[in-house]
């Protein structure tokens, strides 16, 4: 049962990720990326990481992708304003990506202990109860620091998004 679900979700994730890269219209890219994020969320559920499943849907598919869609709408981008790279550059870029995948697969081949790593899906570490306990004891300081990071990010976004007086005159 679970290998079938895994394969289905993996194929959906890879196909929609390809669509993100090759779609002409940026809006289609955003929608394909949302599909990818949902299938990755499904894979989290398959590994019984329930907390991350919920966070993935709320933060990635919800907040971040809505932000992307809003900016696309604000800038009014579509397929015909899409800048294109020359074919020569595309070939070089694809070749370097292929070389990178070659490096990764070489690393996988060298790793001889592969094959006996089972991913147990019935365990409690991914549950909200357990992760919350660890987050607020062992990882309390990083948690607080990340809240400061968020505050800084918020101030930075407002500051960058604001029109300067000189700009609004022209």
């Amino acid at each position: 049962m679970s290998p079938t679900i895994f394969l289905t979700l993996a194929i959906i994730a890879v196909v929609s990720a390809m669509f993100v890269v090759f779609a002409k219209n940026p809006v289609h890219s955003v929608l394909a990326l949302i599909v990818t994020f949902f299938s990755i969320a499904g894979l989290y559920l398959l590994m019984n990481a329930q907390f991350l499943f919920v966070v993935q849907i709320i933060v990635y598919a919800g907040a971040i992708m809505v932000l992307f869609l809003f900016v696309l709408m604000l800038l009014n981008l579509s397929a015909d304003t899409e800048p294109q790279k020359s074919n020569r550059f595309r070939v070089i870029a694809s070749a370097s990506a292929g070389l990178l995948s070659l490096v990764f697969s070489a690393g996988m081949v060298i790793d001889a202990t592969m094959g006996d790593r089972n991913v147990a899906n019935i365990q409690e570490i991914g549950l909200v109860k357990h992760l919350g306990k660890v987050l607020f004891t062992d990882y309390l300081v990083p948690f607080e620091i990340s809240s400061i990071l968020f505050l800084a990010g918020m101030v930075g976004a407002v500051l960058l998004g604001k029109r300067t007086p000189k700009e609004s005159k022209s």
Binding site: A13, V14, V21, T36, L100, S105, M108
Partner: peptide
């Protein structure tokens, strides 16, 4: 790895 390489290619 596949997803990462697709991201790099993009």
């Amino acid at each position: 790895t596949t997803l990462f390489v697709i991201g790099v290619a993009g």
